[in-house]
Design a protein around this nucleic acid. Sequence first.
DNA 1: TATGAATGAGAATTCATTCAT
DNA 2: GATGAATGAATTCTCATTCAT
Lengths: 216, 216, 216, 216
Amino acid sequence: MEKMPRRERERQEHVRHILEVAGDMFAKRGFFKVKMKEIAEQAEFALGTLYGLFKGKQNLYQQSIEQKVDELVTAVSGTMADETSPVLIVKGFVEAKLRFFFENLDFVRLYFAEMHGPPLYGERTLSIALEEKYRVLLERVSDALERGMSDGIFTKASPDVMATAIDGQTSAFVFSWLREVSPDSPEKEIEAAERIFLNGALVRPEGRAVSDGNQE
Amino acid sequence: MEKMPRRERERQEHVRHILEVAGDMFAKRGFFKVKMKEIAEQAEFALGTLYGLFKGKQNLYQQSIEQKVDELVTAVSGTMADETSPVLIVKGFVEAKLRFFFENLDFVRLYFAEMHGPPLYGERTLSIALEEKYRVLLERVSDALERGMSDGIFTKASPDVMATAIDGQTSAFVFSWLREVSPDSPEKEIEAAERIFLNGALVRPEGRAVSDGNQE
Amino acid sequence: MEKMPRRERERQEHVRHILEVAGDMFAKRGFFKVKMKEIAEQAEFALGTLYGLFKGKQNLYQQSIEQKVDELVTAVSGTMADETSPVLIVKGFVEAKLRFFFENLDFVRLYFAEMHGPPLYGERTLSIALEEKYRVLLERVSDALERGMSDGIFTKASPDVMATAIDGQTSAFVFSWLREVSPDSPEKEIEAAERIFLNGALVRPEGRAVSDGNQE
Amino acid sequence: MEKMPRRERERQEHVRHILEVAGDMFAKRGFFKVKMKEIAEQAEFALGTLYGLFKGKQNLYQQSIEQKVDELVTAVSGTMADETSPVLIVKGFVEAKLRFFFENLDFVRLYFAEMHGPPLYGERTLSIALEEKYRVLLERVSDALERGMSDGIFTKASPDVMATAIDGQTSAFVFSWLREVSPDSPEKEIEAAERIFLNGALVRPEGRAVSDGNQE
DNA sequence: TATGAATGAGAATTCATTCAT
DNA sequence: GATGAATGAATTCTCATTCAT
């Protein structure tokens, strides 16, 4: 009752560690530039050990991405689940997504390349799997938007299209970080993304005196 | 005085043709999955000929992307240049960008993977070059936004941040096309992108009665 | 005085069992296609256990063949030992050899490949060992033939050459079984091998009226 | 009209040369012990060249065997075709087969291992192909035997079984050469194989007075 | 003694690039 | 210039064997 769990625990730990190391390397240098031998060295295991733990390079790659996407989905879902008001759910999505990518900037390259780039191997299997995981988040945003629309908070429009828009907008801020040397906080972008999106989506825009017409 | 120009003209045509063919292949299958021999066959040239016209695979790849980005920049710049009003310039950007990517959907994968993905070769040279080309467009949008702000048309904010936001939003619609089997027109997305962005950016949102002030 | 023997008995049984299992696998799929791990699984032992019982893969392979060849030699020797007349000894050889291979058809491939094929490892050690074991049988046949020649039963010729001939002829019938889906009895071939060989070897061919008697 | 043939001629020559070299190596050391790099070195080509000319190691192996079997079949067929009398056809088979293998002793190991040994790769494709090629020869022998039987020259029996017997007997003499250091001529074995087989197959055995003729 | 995870040398194959024709 | 056969460095994956538990 102690032996089997030990072995299994170690195995899990090794897998997790290798996935971590490999994920970083793939993110920084891309699938084809990273050699299995390098991953083994970096992870301090023998080459053969990698093949005992993963089916092959492709499998290691996919798992390293899926693991991180699972983390992303968990983090963002968690934040959204804490809120009930439609506006706060949307804000929660923006905040959590931006914070997660800010903390995992290297992963950004991998994620977007895999989601929208040419398939690494013949099949688009991986990107489809990732889309499915991520779609859960967009659906929650979409639901919140729809609810907000019936409540008269958001302007009426296709909630899916609106979700796509806010998602793309936040991604754009993530990309902007890739261009900077070392962005030091995601706060400014979080604020901007929320403001720009909401002030268009809300029937009565936040913090803007719309009452009078003569603002000049 | 006739021979050399003919030769040169032919050469240019060959280069253009190969770039076209290679660009398509890279977009569909990714840099590493496409073999030089296949490009040669597809372009109906001998393998050696490719090496007479291009320095190597990497060079061919870069040129094929840069060529298309030049087309994109030309197309979008042209459309924006036709307009003078800030709002119309922004709308022009959205329309032209969406139309171009709609017509070159395969290229989308290549472009975004190269812009935001891990570097194919050690250096980020290519993505920097592409960013520079593309930045021109964003700067025009930014300028228009800034002008619109002083004119009291757009809410005051960092024009660069605003430009990033509209750019990301439009990209999101492009990505949504990648998921669809065969989107048949970009019109709906053009309209949505403009509406969502402008109704937040405009001091007096289009088609919305802002007159009343009693929202407390 | 009870414990050690039990241990030893178990060990012998394990060795025998593994040799049996491995022999079958090698016969069906060849030395290089069979993996040590598979043998371990099939034999229901851990991989490391195989290395406690055998020096390595090559050793396991050799032993598995030698074991079966010992069985062959024992079976055929036994049958021949029951007879005294030269003709019956030769018939005994043919019958016992054909029956043994009929019962161990898979082993046929292994045996002949190892006897006449390219050496699996650099050295021909194994095939030499097998030849030595098998030679015993051929010598008995040769002796019987020689005795039969002095007795005027067999035509005069080199008994070794004759032994080679009858041996090859029987092997040919064994090979013919390899081509059939599932031969159901070796009887026909036993009869044919004996008849064809003897009717040439005997001064007075069986079942043939050689009416005149004055050949003495 | 000169260029294409030159290239093609060279290619053929290269293929033939490599097949020759590889065949020898496979025969002496077996499929798995021979490395592609060694074949390349021995044949004085670059490793990659082998892969331009052959699909892979397996393909190279199969072709090297099939080429030699074709030679064997051609040689033996040719000899048999020169004869008309059943007895001479059978003798022709024995002589030509023994002479061919005597001249290609190394190939013997490869041929028999492949014909009767465990499959090198999962499938028995190659051995089936070889059997088909070789069967042609056995069928000619069988036909000759059948004709000889109706002519009253051979004892009545299944001609296929008889063909199997003579084939196996000759093979046995080939194997005996493998055991010798350097057999210097195949003559003795040719004579022995013919004598042993025919004196059993002939109604009136050679060199034996079967004086009476009235066996009806 | 039994176990099976870890090891790493070794091999097949690929493919960008060169260069003789 | 155009051609494509030849090159060989580079890389993935396999599997016999070891050894700590």
